[in-house]
Amino acid sequence: MSEITITIDDRQISAREGDILLWAALDNGVYIPHLCAHREEEHPSASCRLCFVEMQGRPMPVPACTVKVADGMVVSTRSERVDALVAAGFELIMSNHRLDCKNCAANGSCELQRIAKERKLRLKPKNLPALERDLPVDSSAAGILYDPGKCVLCGHCVLACRSSGRGILGFTRRGYERIVTTFGDAPLGESGCDSCGACAGACPVGAFSTRKAR
């Protein structure tokens, strides 16, 4: 694939033709908020709706994870519309994320904290009430804790569990009820999970975390 040059925020960046814009930007030190994008996935999930950018010639902001770069492409990661859209999407996610940074395993390495810091957004939603789903924490596995109340449905754990060869985790239900869970909603400890830790390693927000074996 040929080397090309694109412009992101007035900066010339070289990339390979056909690369995904989101990775091209991140690899060159340009931060774009993102949760669901995965380098190994051929087709973008495009579900977290946070990596919006403006592209010259496109009437509306587009998710950077869905764009293949081409020579001469001109992109800006910030604009009034992009900022408003990202702020709205982030506030929606935070309205459905059990906020407990102090006691959270991901405190300091959390992708949500990073987005809030980079884009100067509040972690606690200002306008939207918190949506409580009352989902219990699953502590049945020997070395894994799962708090579905923190889950942002990015799907990294599902992919990690699958590529580890186990394939225990998956999405079920739809709409607001959509959740990452095991077959038949069995507790992790009874699902064949051997606490390999792949999910916790992949989770960007501390919904899955490792703990010392009892």
Binding site: A46, S47, G89, L92, I93, L153, R174, Y176
Partner: peptide, 20 residues
């Protein structure tokens, strides 16, 4: 809201807040 698949943030949570 009930028929939303729940995949993307805006439809899953935005319609829920609007409905509330």
């Amino acid at each position: 809201q009930k028929e939303s698949c729940g995949k993307c943030t805006f439809c899953r949570l935005g319609t829920k807040h609007m409905l509330d």
